[in-house]
Amino acid sequence: MKTTNFLTTVMIASTLFFVGCGPKDAAIQSAIQAKEAADVTVAVAKGDVTLTGEVADDAAKAKAEEIAKAEKGVKAVMNNLTVKPMMPVVIAGDADLMKNVADATKDFPSVKADVKDGVVTLTGELNKASLITLMQHLSALKPKKIENKLTIK
């Protein structure tokens, strides 16, 4: 009898505990989730917040943690966010670059372009309006650098 009473008490107590805790966690979860960026997933258990997902950089990771910590009722924040690895810089080889630079500069007869070790060096002259077009064309060719020594008219 005593054991039954004890079990009943435990059951009632734990039910009360979970009832008391569940909705609060859910409220905290939705409040934080609403403030976080779309790629951050928020989980809350007994006031402990866990952040998962992939973000663009360290600043975004720190910001997400700050947002979670600022929420009322949060005991601790486990920041399990990962930072998206940066795409490495791709530089075209000189052979490809030379051919593509020749194609890109064909319509700019007053411009001379030299390619060495990925660096495109521009000499000659060009009017201001055409400069953006030329730079746009050259930047798409994955050069290491564009050294613009053009005289702009």
């Binding site: 201001k128 953006i132 730079m135 050069p143 290491k144 650098k145 564009i146």
Partner: peptide, 21 residues
């Protein structure tokens, strides 16, 4: 590209490769 041109007039510094398709 307009913003780039404002920060670095005539793209003379050679310190940025802006490749936006």
């Amino acid at each position: 590209w307009d913003i780039y041109n404002q920060i670095d007039p005539n793209f003379a510094s050679g310190d940025l490769v802006l490749n936006v398709n």
